[in-house]
Simulated assay, not measured.
Amino acid sequence: MSILSRIDDKHVPLYRVMWVAATPHFCGEEDCMREGCYEVRLEQGESIWANAADNDRLITQLELWQGGLGPPDAGDDEAAW
């Protein structure tokens, strides 16, 4: 497994990713170029934008890189979302 993930036309080191948006961007501006894209926040306050496929692949790579998801906790209500 590579420590890099390709997002759009960029190879991003997984360790630079701070968080990944769970919902696509929507601001309502007529000239917005990011509608429907997912924000990926990097360290140093930088952001890049991913399409749905890149977003899903990045999340999978992050989970694998960190050892995968553990067993679900009894109090885990994430499935309710």
Rank of each mutant, 00 (worst) to 15 (best):
28 G>Y: 09
64 L>R: 07
54 D>H: 04
11 H>Q: 15
73 D>I: 05
75 G>M: 11
12 V>H: 04
69 L>H: 13
63 E>I: 00
6 R>E: 15
9 D>R: 11
3 I>A: 05
29 E>R: 07
63 E>N: 01
22 A>G: 08
39 E>M: 01
56 D>V: 02
44 Q>D: 03
20 V>M: 09
44 Q>P: 03
72 P>E: 08
29 E>G: 08
43 E>G: 13
42 L>S: 06
6 R>V: 14
77 D>T: 09
30 E>D: 12
2 S>N: 15
14 L>C: 00
57 R>F: 13
65 W>G: 03
21 A>L: 00
46 E>D: 14
16 R>S: 06
64 L>M: 07
77 D>A: 10
53 A>E: 12
42 L>N: 07
7 I>D: 04
49 W>R: 10
61 Q>S: 01
8 D>W: 11
8 D>V: 09
33 M>T: 11
16 R>T: 05
64 L>F: 07
51 N>I: 00
9 D>V: 06
5 S>H: 11
31 D>H: 05
75 G>I: 12
49 W>Y: 13
23 T>S: 11
8 D>M: 09
2 S>Y: 11
31 D>G: 02
19 W>C: 08
15 Y>W: 15
65 W>R: 05
38 Y>F: 00
32 C>M: 11
4 L>S: 00
38 Y>K: 01
57 R>S: 15
64 L>D: 01
18 M>S: 15
80 A>H: 13
38 Y>R: 05
81 W>F: 12
37 C>Q: 10
15 Y>H: 14
79 A>K: 10
24 P>F: 01
45 G>A: 01
46 E>H: 14
67 G>P: 05
47 S>M: 09
36 G>H: 04
78 E>G: 10
48 I>R: 00
56 D>W: 06
25 H>I: 08
6 R>C: 15
70 G>A: 13
80 A>G: 14
14 L>D: 01
14 L>K: 04
55 N>V: 06
76 D>S: 02
68 G>Q: 00
59 I>A: 07
35 E>P: 06
20 V>D: 08
54 D>T: 07
23 T>D: 12
8 D>N: 12
53 A>R: 10
72 P>K: 06
42 L>M: 13
52 A>Y: 07
48 I>H: 02
12 V>C: 08
46 E>L: 13
81 W>P: 08
2 S>T: 14
74 A>H: 04
18 M>R: 15
71 P>D: 02
42 L>Y: 06
34 R>A: 01
61 Q>N: 04
46 E>R: 14
12 V>P: 03
9 D>E: 08
15 Y>E: 12
23 T>F: 11
57 R>I: 12
37 C>G: 09
72 P>C: 01
34 R>C: 06
59 I>P: 05
59 I>Q: 09
10 K>L: 14
34 R>M: 02
27 C>H: 02
69 L>F: 12
62 L>M: 11
29 E>W: 04
72 P>M: 04
12 V>F: 02
4 L>Y: 00
20 V>W: 02
44 Q>M: 01
50 A>C: 03
18 M>N: 14
35 E>W: 10
12 V>I: 13
13 P>H: 06
68 G>F: 01
